[in-house]
Structures are given as structure tokens and as C-alpha cells.
Design a protein around this nucleic acid. Structure first.
Lengths: 119, 119
DNA sequence: CATTCATTTCAATATCTATTGAGATATCGA
DNA sequence: TCGATATCTCAATAGATATTGAAATGAATG
């Protein structure tokens, strides 16, 4: 991950429709969603949707595959973790006290909410 | 952290000068840097710098304080961790296998590089 | 209290980005 | 192959954002 890539990703995520698409696809999981389904969820015309999806794909945040008549889009998770790493890496060189709280804030988000007992 | 805030932060970080300022301030630590020093580092005219700094401040990524004739800017670290949390939170609801690698990628970045022995 | 220094504000302009609608392309089934 | 479906591409327009230079503000110093 270099600066140029990071800028592209931030630009991609700075647009409401695109941010929603990314979050939708992240939640949709590895199977992804057809462009048409995304368009319905976003209430966006096909050309507009296509514009945003290709923007996201260029930034490396989503990938696409053809499946019959549909084109299926799915999130590219490593891009997100690389981005986060890019954001935090520099700050941690000599300032680990800064990033440790960030990690602490993140950790609970990755615990599977399986039972009511939290211990 | 809501969607609107996240959009503002991504927009703030999607501009080359602003991303560099944020990284500079993150590395500068809690003491921060005077606007003039930042301007030198960025080779940016004062009005241009001011435009970007106020953009960053509005997004909550930096804060400022007056110190004599100078205005000192410093990074707001919690905003970054909130942003990361916002990005990852949804995806982890039901998809912890997605976020765990992200965290694994992050963890080493927060280890203080103290000695040559890496074990 | 006038001068200098540090930074911001403002207005004009240039550049970049998003939306729209029409048409092109690709796939499938009859 | 024809028609229907799904998606993309293109060109025009509208809207948002960045840069510039000049002028204003606020704080320190003699």
C-alpha cells in the first residue's frame, strides 16, 4: 500500500453511494451481490451504479465476476486491512502508545457474539 | 461515529496535501506542529494550508491551539480509531473471519521495534 | 501605539467529480 | 437467430472542491 493507493481508496470511500455499497458488500460476505441487487438496494440507475462500482473496483475495494447474465461484485477484504495498516503504521514507529488504544477499540468488534454470557 | 462523519473523514483524507499533513502530525506526536512548520514541510502557501487545515479540523482529524503568535495543530488519534472501528464493525457482525486477519495484520505495527532480535 | 510576524478570510478561477439519458455490448432462452 | 435481460460506455451538464493572491485579523515587541 503506497500513498497513491491510499488516496484512491479514501476518495472511493468519501462518496455516500460508494461507502454504502462497500458496507453492503462487506456484510454480504464472499459470495457478493449482483450489480442489479446492489442497484435496487441503492435505488440508483444502472449507469450511475456502474460508475461507482468501477470506481470501487479501480481502487481495489471490490472485485467482480460474471455469472450468467449478471455481474457479481464482492468486497476485497485485504484492501481494507492494508488501508488500516497504512494509516497506523507510521504513527506506531516510535508512538506505539497511540496505536494500542486503536487496536483495543477494534478487538471487541471482532468477537463473535455467540452467547449471552460475555465471559 | 456515523456515516456522515465517516464520509467527511474519508473526504478529508482523500486529498494528497491533507493526507500528508495528517501523517506528519501523527508522527509529530501530541505536541503537534505550528501551522508555519507544516506549511514549510508541505511547501504550501499559507492560504492553501489554512484551507486544508480547517478542512481537517472540521472532520475532527486535527485540533488546534494558539501558542503566542503561532497556532499549533496536532492529530486527534481517537478519530482515527473510531473510523477504523466504523469500517470494521459492520463486517464483523457475523463475519469475524473477515476482521480477524485485519487485526492480525495490524498487531505487528504496534509492536515497539526495540531490539534487533525479532523473536 | 506602530510595526512585524503568523495565520485566516475572501473572491475569482480552474479543475475534478457525479449524474443523466441514450445507445452499445454480452448472455440466455425460445 | 430474435427478443428479452443485465450491465456497461459515452458525451453532455451540473455540482463540488482546490488554488491563487490580496486583504483582514490577532498577538507580540520595541
Amino acid at each position: 500500500m503506497n500513498e497513491r493507493q491510499a488516496l484512491d481508496i479514501f476518495a472511493a470511500l468519501s462518496q455516500e453511494t460508494r461507502l454504502r455499497i462497500v458496507r453492503l458488500l462487506i456484510n454480504a460476505g464472499p459470495d457478493g451481490l449482483a450489480a442489479g441487487s446492489i442497484g435496487e438496494a441503492m435505488e440508483a440507475a444502472s449507469s450511475r451504479l456502474s460508475f461507482h462500482l468501477s470506481h470501487l473496483e479501480t481502487a481495489g475495494l471490490v472485485q467482480s465476476r460474471r455469472e450468467g447474465r449478471s455481474i457479481i461484485y464482492s468486497a476485497v477484504y485485504p484492501t481494507l486491512s492494508d488501508l488500516i495498516e497504512f494509516l497506523l503504521r507510521d504513527c506506531c514507529q516510535g508512538h506505539p502508545e497511540i496505536c494500542t488504544p486503536a487496536l483495543a477499540a477494534l478487538s471487541p468488534c471482532c468477537e463473535k457474539p455467540k452467547g449471552p454470557a460475555n465471559a
